[in-house]
Write a protein that binds this DNA or RNA. Sequence first.
DNA 1: TCATGTACCTGACCATAGTCAGACGATCTT
DNA 2: AAGATCGTCTGACTATGGTCAGGTACATGA
Lengths: 297, 297
Amino acid sequence: MVRYMIDVDPMATVRRFNRSYTQRIGALEDSFLGLGLPLGATRLLFEVGVQPATVQALRGRLGLDSGYVSRLLRRLEADGLVEVAADPADRRRRVVSLTPIGEKRWSELEARSDDKAKTLLEPLSERQQRRLAACLSEADLLVRAATVTFEEVDPASPAAREATGMYFTELRRRFDFDDAGLDRRDAEALRPPGGVFVLAVSDGEAVACGGVQTIGAGVGEIKRMWVRDTWRGAGLGGRLLHHLEERARNFRHALVRLDTNETLTEAIGLYERSGYRPIDRYNDNPHATHFFEKPLE
Amino acid sequence: MVRYMIDVDPMATVRRFNRSYTQRIGALEDSFLGLGLPLGATRLLFEVGVQPATVQALRGRLGLDSGYVSRLLRRLEADGLVEVAADPADRRRRVVSLTPIGEKRWSELEARSDDKAKTLLEPLSERQQRRLAACLSEADLLVRAATVTFEEVDPASPAAREATGMYFTELRRRFDFDDAGLDRRDAEALRPPGGVFVLAVSDGEAVACGGVQTIGAGVGEIKRMWVRDTWRGAGLGGRLLHHLEERARNFRHALVRLDTNETLTEAIGLYERSGYRPIDRYNDNPHATHFFEKPLE
DNA sequence: TCATGTACCTGACCATAGTCAGACGATCTT
DNA sequence: AAGATCGTCTGACTATGGTCAGGTACATGA
């Protein structure tokens, strides 16, 4: 009837997991019920508790109608669980935050989530608990990686600056890197019409980045490829590289080049696996030790 | 901020997985919406499609009120999606099944589930898809094992007969086993007050069984320990054995014995791991080659 | 300063989800 | 054969979830 071990069709496996898991725990709602508040109000309370936010932000995060959220907030307010105050920066906006009583309710929600996880783990031996945790952790990484979205942003935007900042920090840890003055020059080249800068975003957070610029007729260059350390091993780098090559193709480049430092072994491995061949130095980048290129068919 | 790989707390891992997974796919409901039917009716339609059933069974599977299910059925009937007919065996009961139109709608639901799984898998490389499938498959087995419930049933009940039937089939495959007349005799001993027969149930299906009987003053005997082949390797046997020892303790037994056949190597391994020591033959069971006992503190 | 737009709110409205108390025929028990 | 029980259905009812059309205060740009 059910054959867990010998199954090899990934799609069937995912479907079976979805069905069995959501039936058992996935009823996320369960833990959101029984607090004396209806589900919608509880979801809102939880969201406010994660981080105080404007009404607008809450609406966005939960995907709810403006009037509906407003009504829910009145209810939470009447119950003394949240406070709503005008945003000093823009008095049309209103900021919602938890009252002390609200905090208490919120931690009850947390405790319920803990309980649910505990019920699931308790019957298992310690070894099995660790196996389950390992499986879910790896699955989580893969699922997150699969649902990452690539967004084209201006290389001077705050989000892009933050990502490149982390990239530079990483470089500094690996070798004697100095980024003085880099930002200004590069930002120009990584902007349309000759270039592009891409962020990989998950849960509103940049987890990888990279750009393409034009360095000659028909020749593009991949720049600032970076993957957050906690996201490595999920194939994100390969997907990003592929995405950037696609963009280079759109620029009518017949060839992409890139340089890198010998200490960045994962990156070098990725380039080699992805069809890049070592070439001679093609620029005067003092930090680069290895140079690659790949023809785009 | 998030550290996937170095996390070792199983509870935190489970919680994080729940949150991220349900956010991305777990919204099981998504695929149940947009069919022109409300959620409740769609859930019922799906359940009927999995297997035609009595109203009672549907109520149980979905955990819904009798009146509510009846109303939903009237709606599905009016839409020409299901047929309701009296059960010939008991004309109070009514059996629900899909009409051809209903079948068509049901396969739309299936297609939606497939789509959802596909969206998740598509961005991943084939190797990663296999890794994800392997992780989810193992997690699924562990989660199912953790949520199994132990139910005490009469050894002559249909559910118990079915489980022991599968047990005997297994024995026949392993060695020259003959169950002639066993049922009748054993059933008596595995019933209160002197014994008990336990089924491990998952999704309404028996996945393991076992019993305890009294064979002397203060001495119990474990009988008919069986775990469905697809459920092995999840520690279910150990939990069941532990559960049965608990029951034996309730009978005030100071000692439990059991016999087994040399071909049942997994079982022998389990007994040895669980503190059972080999002893001399204590009965005339022609099929038994190995004998064990364990003192209950 | 005035038109225009934005952020949030209120009232009116509706379908869905779910509960509960009988009603009614079929079946089981004695 | 009568009474109890079971399985399903109907009617009456409630709360929840969600939409929509204005309305009001604030912000912005010409």
